[in-house]
Computed example of a mutant assay.
Amino acid sequence: MTQAPLPDGAVAGAGPLTSLETALALLLEELEPVGVLYLALERSLGAVAAEALPLAQDLPLADEATMDGFAFAAADLVGASSYSPVAFFAEPRRVEIGWPMPEGCDCVLDASLVDFHGGVVEAMAEAFPGEGMRRAGEDLRIGGTTTTPGRRLSPIDLLIARRLGLESLAVRRPRVGIIDVGNDRHGPTAAFVADFSASEGAATGGIVTVQRDEGSISAAIDEALGDDGCDLLVLVGGTGRGAEDRTVAAFAPRAEAWRHGIALRPGTSAAVARIGGRPVIALPGTPGEAIAAALTLLRPLLDRLAGRAPRTALTLPLAAKIASSGGLAELVLLQRSGAALRPIATGGFSLESLGRADAFLVVPGSSEGYAAGTAVDAFPLFEAR
């Protein structure tokens, strides 16, 4: 799968295009998820859970109040109302949210429904057993599990972890190195790659900016991949066919295998490689092309490194047909339209269309598209989990 070295002055990517499937196979070959690390809860949000949390005890341990008020036995309140209050000569126990329920009590009345006068306590409402309280074990049962390995940690997962008294969680968080080629300071596309990687649960160590010359790019690659500094490297820009586009020329001599020119529209000028056993992706500097390549190449790579469970497709019929010329995999942006998906951009994206899109799908190079009404498997453009 190794391409021949470039002759002096040659332009990379001038040969036949590599299929999207072949490019992905090169990136994913023998690639294993990164190791497990334990992150403090405040740093775990969005990372991919590495293990479930078996419960050693029921929670809560005992019945507890879920509202502020007074604890009663529901049977003692039968018939109570503001017109016919039930009198008690022993003062009821006040409880607050999270307090254990007093023995013999199985409900909580709001303080506004309890009247004190002349040494007599009057309850002015009924309550059913369990009202205003949570039974022991009602939140979490012993032997059950919390969090789902392979899924990104949500605020609910962190709430459960705190409820269990945990201070850290086992996660997988790939480290992404980013090199922005041809800029004195990082441009919007490189910043997008950093934001995209973070939104997918990865960690980025900042963006390195280099000039568009082979020596500068080569030095940045060596530094990024040295000393196990990242699990995957993304270069942004300099992937075209122009004489000054030297990104591929810089990494090709270092690569065990590489491909430049992917049969993907948009994103044709993207490149992929393996250097020192680690995956490398070179994305076009144009935002629309970079986003297409990020969704089809970078996202599957991050999923593998993070040990992420397969994503759930959104299967709905198309509100309009999708025509494809064939030969190239084409990314299609979709907008939810009732119980259907409406294509809003194919093969080329504006920022406006990206802002309106809810999902995307990839039309394989072997397909000529889909008729209106065809049920397709689409995936959210960006996901919370």
Rank of each mutant, 00 (worst) to 15 (best):
D180C: 14
E21A: 15
L61N: 04
L164A: 06
A359D: 01
V121A: 05
L45Q: 13
C230L: 11
I344F: 04
A50D: 06
D115E: 11
F116M: 00
T18R: 07
L169E: 11
L232K: 02
G285M: 03
V114L: 05
F192R: 03
T286L: 06
D180R: 05
P60G: 08
S350C: 07
S199C: 03
G137A: 05
I291L: 10
G365L: 01
R172A: 06
G206H: 05
P188Y: 13
M101C: 05
G229C: 02
G215M: 09
F196Y: 09
A313I: 00
T209D: 14
L351E: 15
G229Q: 02
E244P: 14
T209R: 12
A12L: 06
W99Y: 04
F360S: 05
I142Q: 02
T204P: 11
L264I: 01
I291A: 00
D58A: 10
S337Y: 07
R254E: 00
F251L: 13
V234E: 01
S199F: 00
P92L: 04
A255I: 05
A170D: 08
S337G: 11
R152N: 06
A252N: 06
W258S: 08
V181M: 08
F192I: 10
T374Q: 07
G215Q: 08
V362Q: 12
D180S: 08
A220Y: 02
T204K: 06
V86D: 01
A249H: 03
V376R: 02
C105I: 02
L235C: 02
G104K: 05
R385I: 07
R141P: 02
E214Y: 01
G104P: 04
I156L: 15
G285E: 01
Q211Y: 09
R162L: 08
R212A: 15
S44A: 15
F192Q: 14
V121P: 06
I156E: 15
V34H: 01
L351V: 14
R299E: 13
F382L: 11
L39S: 13
A65E: 02
T66G: 06
A202L: 10
S366F: 08
T268P: 01
R265P: 00
A202E: 09
G261L: 05
S168K: 15
L158Q: 12
A90L: 10
G373C: 04
A170W: 11
L37Q: 15
T239Y: 01
G215S: 10
A40T: 12
S168A: 13
A49W: 07
A47I: 10
L301C: 12
A25N: 12
P155D: 03
F70H: 11
F72V: 04
L24T: 02
G69F: 03
P174F: 09
T346L: 07
T189C: 04
E29I: 03
D213C: 00
R241E: 10
V208R: 14
G347Y: 09
S353G: 02
G288E: 12
T147Q: 10
T346K: 15
E383I: 13
R173L: 01
I97C: 01
E330N: 12
A371Y: 03
D213K: 06
D245I: 05
G307R: 01
A75M: 00
A194K: 09
A290I: 10
L351Y: 07
L341G: 14
L113G: 00
A357G: 00
P174I: 06
I207P: 09
R185P: 07
